[in-house]
Amino acid sequence: MAELLRLRGLIKRFGGLVATDGVDLTVQEGEVHALIGPNGAGKTTLVHLISGALRGNAGSVFFAGEELTHAPVHERVRRGLVRSYQVTSIFTRLSALDNALLAVQAAAGSSMRFWTPVRTERAFTRDARALLMRVGLLDRAEVVAGTLAHGEQRKLEVALALAARPRLLLLDEPLAGLGPEESLHMVELIGGLAGEVTIVLVEHDMDAVFKLAHRISVLVSGRIVATGAPDEIRSDARVRQAYLGDELGSAA
């Protein structure tokens, strides 16, 4: 397996707080790499650093052999480094289909086009509907996104990320706020994606993490304290001590 994402000595300070404290991380092409850690460990900060929403104070980000440390969000997306949000970020006043259409259009070349109505670009509608079908929302295409159920909004969130045809998908707590039933569907959806796209999964739900991940990195106080296969992580004494404790035992 080839290396797809590499973080080297990433540091991010907020005033006196060091949220990311020299993170080194390598993600292989094709794997599902879970990022776990207690609240406040700096997981979301790390997601922001990888996606480009925040710039680090030191260190570098390499993606597919290219340095993207200083690239803005939209350039990283164009190269296939795409994220979803922990707090659902969709176009709440637009229909699910229009949400998908905006996402599809983003991946279809420049939008500096001023004349042809988008409505006449049939390929967009076709691709947008295919996208909704993939996450199981096709029958909800005309519904205003803000009125969708929470679980459906989370699916739409994933659909928007998928439209960019990511090589690496950064999923920031995709199960946040989902009921048991919806969680199952989402885990199924992510499992289905795992074959085609590399995934970095930030998640608190240990059942889901151990079901989906090929490798797990444990983040504590802004540092990666361990990286390894699920079984190794489960039995790692430092990890147990730092974070997992009983939770790990119950997931085993």
């Binding site: 996606s51 803005p72 969000v73 939209h74 350039e75 997306v77 164009r78 795409v82 994220r83 949000y85 970020s89 969709i90 176009f91 709440t92 006043r93 637009l94 905006l102 996402a103 983003a106 991946a107 939008s111 928007l160 990320a161 439209a163 960019a164």
Partner: peptide
């Protein structure tokens, strides 16, 4: 207008 952050994350040079 609807969601600038999301547009950026979709890949638009907002």
């Amino acid at each position: 207008r609807e969601n600038e952050t999301r547009m950026e994350a979709l890949g638009y040079a907002v």
